[in-house]
Design a protein around this nucleic acid. Structure first.
Length: 206
DNA sequence: GACAAGATTAGCT
DNA sequence: GCTAATCTTGTCT
């Protein structure tokens, strides 16, 4: 049985956590079964200097959860339709998080299809932040959950990773207007479940 | 109170 | 590639 990543994993520099989350497995219980997927695309948001971060120059309201201890789930609602899932990083009071933008579905694929309302097209199931949340039944009820202590919602090591040997790509973030200059998006090279954008072509190989 | 923007998506051209 | 859908949040009056 896989164990959740420890608190120490999350209480580190946000960019380090973001990069290391690639390839890890996110697991969530849905009824009697577990849904899981490999994280293939993330973005970092850093409160201290990043105007795109909800916690930039703010401590109250929606972003309050971003100031919790690393390993806490931060979920918010955007564009009147969609949820986005983040993991808080660093010590309590810092205001940083990593957005999970895309995963590769592993377990519970049939259930994810039902939740998404699509039958075919596996690629389209979780290749975007809103799609991933819908497929994993993530919404505001999950905001503030502790991914270190919660047995039904956590991120775990991928023991196949040592043989998979992933290549990490870095680029600017997607769908923001402020903070475009920060190259805080990371994704796995050549993975089909990364959200497709022109920006992929200008990404840097790390 | 009012208003504009937003870490998106699906559907159409 | 372009745009409507849809509603919460933050900001200003």
């Amino acid at each position: 049985m896989n164990r959740p990543l420890s608190r120490d994993f999350y209480i580190r520099d946000t960019l380090t956590v973001a990069k290391e989350l690639l390839g890890k497995i996110i697991v969530k219980r849905y009824g009697k079964l577990f849904l899981s997927g490999k994280i293939v695309e993330v973005e970092a948001y850093i409160g201290s200097h990043d105007p795109a971060c909800h916690a930039y120059m703010r401590t109250k309201g929606r972003c309050e959860v971003m100031y919790a201890i690393g390993g806490t789930a931060y979920v918010y609602f955007v564009y009147g339709n969609h949820y986005c899932f983040n993991v808080v990083t660093g010590a309590k009071g810092e205001g940083n998080a990593v957005l999970v933008r895309a995963v590769e579905p592993l377990e519970g694929i049939e259930t994810m299809k039902l939740l998404r309302g699509i039958e075919h097209n596996l690629i389209n199931l979780t290749n975007g932040p809103g799609k991933f949340c819908k497929a994993f039944d993530i919404d505001m009820k999950d905001n503030g959950r502790d991914l270190v202590m919660d047995k039904n919602f956590f991120i775990t090591e991928n023991y196949k990773l040592s043989t998979e040997k992933i290549i990490i790509m870095q680029s600017g973030r997607i769908g923001i207007n402020k903070g475009k200059e920060f190259p805080y998006r990371f994704f796995i090279y050549n993975n089909n479940f990364v959200s497709k954008h022109k920006i992929n072509e200008t990404a840097i190989r790390l």
